[in-house]
Structures are given as structure tokens and as C-alpha cells.
């Protein structure tokens, strides 16, 4: 497929992004550049200075809600992409409601309990949706440990073991790799199954 053919195929597709931090912001930008038709961004946090080491935002956006700032950044790249934003903390009821029309859902949360919540909600309550989760991205190096695991409608990208901690922080390269692998899988799912 040519670039234009790919853009045409993606033009009517909708991707839900749960969390607009390191994974969500980088994944959303990659999908926007590729020509996804619509993104649904959900995050209730405001941007902090410490987020700029890995998240797709700029210093003059500190203090803004991430979902709204990410919409602005996406529209600076391509203002034809539809972006729906929600400044809210997701729970199972909201996941099924807000992501009902998505073709694929990206799990891009920071916290393990939120990751579990959305995976169980999508697998348990949304029978036709695929979810792509990022698991294990802290630190640096170890490129070859990052991979994809697939079980039915659940896809896991990451090294499956590196948890963040004060001495094992999330950094731009590894977070960006996992986020872009999530976006890459979205393309594979949407372009192959279409």
C-alpha cells in the first residue's frame, strides 16, 4: 500500500487512548502522523515539568490538562484529524461508554491497578474490541527485551518486567519505543483485518 492508500484506509478508523502520558501522547502522535481518522483521548491529569522527559508536550504547556494539550499538539501536526477529549478518570462504566465506537483501544496508563481495570473491562465487557497494553518500559538499554505478546483480543507490548521506581525511571527512548510499537500494532490490526 502507498502512503495515500494507507491514509485512505485509516480515515474512518477510531482509536481510543486511555491515558495521555508517556505512552498515550507518543502513540497518539504516531497515529496522527499516519492518518488515523479519529482519536479519543482520556486523561484527568495536568502536565508537570517532570513529564517533559518523555511525554509529547512542550514547556509552555505546563499546568494544562494533558488530554487538551495533546489535542492541540496533534492539530499542529494535522488539523483534519478529529480529536475527542475527556478530562476524567476512567472507571469500567466510562471505558465501555467512551470507547464504544473505537476500533482499537490503547492502554496507556501509568499505574498497575488502572492497567488491570481497563484490560479486564475490555476483555470482559466489550466482546468485539482489541486492546493494546504497554507493560514494562522503565530504564534504558535492553532493546532486544522489548517485544509483543498476543492472546486473543489482548496485545501486550514491552519487556514484561521493568517496573518504574525512583532508581529505574521511565525515560524518553524506551517509553517512546513501546508507545510507537503500540501504534505500529494498531496499524497492523486495522490494515490487515480491514
Amino acid at each position: 500500500m502507498t502512503t495515500e492508500e494507507i491514509r485512505e484506509r485509516l480515515a474512518d478508523k477510531v482509536v481510543g487512548i486511555a491515558g495521555c502520558g508517556g505512552l498515550g501522547s507518543n502513540c497518539a502522535v504516531a497515529l496522527a502522523r499516519t492518518g488515523i481518522g479519529k482519536l479519543i483521548l482520556v486523561d484527568d491529569d495536568k502536565l508537570e515539568a517532570t513529564n517533559l522527559n518523555r511525554q509529547y508536550f512542550f514547556a509552555d504547556q505546563i499546568g494544562e490538562y494533558k488530554s487538551l494539550a495533546l489535542r492541540d499538539n496533534i492539530h499542529r501536526i494535522d488539523d483534519t484529524i478529529l480529536v475527542e477529549t475527556h478530562v476524567i478518570r476512567l472507571d469500567p462504566g466510562l471505558v465501555t461508554k467512551l470507547f464504544a465506537d473505537c476500533d482499537v483501544i490503547i492502554e496507556a496508563f501509568d499505574q498497575d491497578n488502572e492497567k488491570q481495570m481497563i484490560i479486564e473491562t475490555v476483555l470482559g465487557d466489550m466482546p468485539d474490541k482489541s486492546i493494546i497494553s504497554g507493560q514494562g518500559l522503565a530504564g534504558y538499554g535492553k532493546n532486544d527485551m522489548i517485544g509483543t505478546m498476543h492472546s486473543g483480543r489482548l496485545y501486550i507490548v514491552g519487556d514484561h518486567q521493568s517496573e518504574v521506581s525512583p532508581t529505574h525511571p521511565p525515560l524518553a527512548p524506551r517509553v517512546g519505543i513501546v508507545a510507537n510499537m503500540q501504534a505500529n500494532l494498531v496499524l497492523e490490526i486495522l490494515l490487515i483485518t480491514d
Binding site: 491515558g19 507493560q135 501486550i156
Partner: peptide, 10 residues
């Protein structure tokens, strides 16, 4: 059987 660890970080 699939047993997946939830790993914080994002």
C-alpha cells in the same frame, strides 16, 4: 493458561 503481570509505568 495466561498469567500476566501488571507493570506500572507509562
Amino acid at each position: 493458561v495466561l498469567v500476566l503481570h501488571m507493570i506500572s509505568g507509562g
